[in-house]
Design a protein around this nucleic acid. Structure first.
Lengths: 100, 100
DNA sequence: TTTACATATAATTATATTATAATATGATGC
DNA sequence: GCATCATATTATAATATAATTATATGTAAA
């Protein structure tokens, strides 16, 4: 592994940066359970609408989340099962008591 | 999981931030194979001594890396096997061809 | 067709992170 | 002691990221 392709490292770091934020990580933990719309996420995270929306679209652009419109709501969900694994591995590190 | 303890999220985000950087991630990928000293890491990453040292101590402080002095060299290694898992999961996401 | 609702975008300001350069520490050999 | 090597620390200037506010879009109901 002497030569890890620089562009892979770059993409992976970009992906990580997208997760490495309190609010975004909080969002992702909630989305582990399934899709949620922006309004619900506002409730559970306590974040403001605009702030939340910006963070969601950041994660969508990078390919961690996908979204789907139902009626006038937009539901977000974790698009890539491997990202779920990453979040879950993190929970093991920081929530040894399993965080239920 | 409605109530993810805020302090856990905070710590986890801090840990992620420590990994979410091109150079630091590159370092971690190299350290997956085993301990390396600063000089070796300078060679494989091409980073400057001071820069590297700062990034290493950041990761050490946060508990991702540990270090051990042998003679006049300091060897760094990944302290927590779960962080290895996170890095490996990432490689699966971004290096589908296995990055060897 | 207006109103209200759900979400998105833009602009701004505040704060955090980074790389570099310069300097310091601390061990080893002479 | 003095010079050298390996690493750490500090200061700083450049850059990136965040939260807030204000505004815009799109859609459904009245």
């Amino acid at each position: 592994m002497d030569a890890i392709p620089q562009d892979k490292i770059q993409s992976a770091a970009q992906g990580l940066r997208a997760v490495a934020h309190e609010l975004r990580l909080n969002i992702l933990c909630h989305l582990l359970k399934g899709p949620m719309c922006v309004g619900e996420l506002m409730e559970v995270t306590g974040a403001g609408q605009s702030n939340l929306s910006q963070h969601l679209s950041k994660m969508r652009l990078i390919g961690i989340l996908a979204s789907e419109k139902r009626g006038q709501q937009v539901f977000y969900y974790i698009d890539n099962p491997r990202w779920k694994q990453v979040i879950e591995a993190l929970q093991l590190i920081y929530c040894p008591e399993q965080c239920r």
